[in-house]
Write a protein that binds this DNA or RNA. Structure first.
Lengths: 126, 126, 126, 126
DNA sequence: GTGGTCTAGACCACG
DNA sequence: GTGGTCTAGACCACG
């Protein structure tokens, strides 16, 4: 894992964890990696991992179990999914569209870049 | 102008200037606002504006004229446009598509959010 | 350290750092003094030191380690040495020679000033 | 004439004038170019030329003649020559030698760059 | 008027 | 502890 220089590592860790949650890699009700383990695996200070876990805890996605570590909360997966969808639809999509217009990029150009394997181009169906 | 808290003001200023350049609001070969003027207009310290101008200067978009201020370089507009398009196509579009898949969002949902006023979905008109 | 008045302090700091690099006083892969420490030692504002470090960073001589400070890059020593030699040979030597001619100063006069302790005038020894 | 960005134009003008004086291009007792003329020729603000002339006047190299402009003082040529030689010998030569040592550049390397057409290599004589 | 530099002091994120 | 950012204020050279 390589971290970008322009964003705090702990926030990039939060993103990473969210992705592990919605992908199901981390299962609800089970332990997530300890801060030491995750820190070692990613070559990051355990302190920094803890700061990311603090954030996840504040969002009620993980909770501490005395002597055990952190476990993934029930409904965490759906919770993250919904929250990320909301932000994506309400903020990222409009920003993306606005940037397309500003740069005068047509949808066609985007289809060229990303050939839309499946259902993304309606006229391909049937 | 309101600045977001999660990104340095001077970088947001760089973004703002780039937008003024590609929109043509700033004309090539002419003076751009002085650091004092832009700072006053945006309620930002001139020093912070200068830091943004330093970056634009490093990208060869503006150049200082002693005792006069900064001039927008020739080709700045096309240069910015091309650079921003390249980054958008090569990085932002793929990241956007990846996030769509990750969140299981179909193109249809995006069209709902952003009704694509004009040519972007020609086959839907009437 | 005393700074000359006709050159920005931060540029004189850059020169100073380059000299510490080529002399080996700063070792590759190790921390260089923090901006606070160097600032205190030289009676200069840490902000000014940071401005010098920014320049060194742009030249890929040092790189920041979050929360730790700056590290001297690998190959920094040889890189600085080569760059300084190139500039010296291509620009400073010709300018020096040109000035000698302009002022009608013979090489002999320079040897008088600078007796060339060792190998620089071998045929004169004994 | 192209001016370097890292040194005030008026000081570069002073250098230029000194060179015109020691080369004899400007003759003692005769008018030097007016600030307007020199400014136009070099594409520099006359105000800036005047600032350079102020400095030359302070060094007693030129003096104003009411209604005429400035004339080059008697002994200006020898005066400049001596002053520049003094600075060259006392400061620039030692700095040059010091830099050679610092960069580990031998006199031989300099001879390679600058083949010393005439008397600069004693063993070439006779 | 313009930018360039420097200081002093503050607050912050990071590790 | 570290660097990064920002402000306020000052002084300067330049044109």
């Amino acid at each position: 894992m390589d971290f970008k220089a322009d964003k705090p590592i702990y926030l990039q860790l939060v993103d990473l964890c969210r992705r592990k949650i919605i992908s199901g890699e981390w299962a609800e009700g089970e332990r997530v990696p300890s801060v030491r383990e995750l820190g070692a695996r990613l070559a990051v200070n355990p302190h920094t991992v803890l700061k990311a876990y603090d954030e996840l805890q504040r969002e009620a996605l993980i909770e501490p179990r005395r002597g055990l570590g952190f476990i993934l909360c029930d409904n965490a997966r759906e919770g993250v999914r919904r929250a990320m969808r909301d932000v994506f639809i309400a903020q990222e999509v409009p920003a993306f569209i606005a940037k397309m217009k500003e740069l005068d990029i047509s949808p066609a150009e985007i289809f060229d870049v990303c050939p839309a394997e499946d259902e993304s181009r309606p006229d391909n169906i049937r």
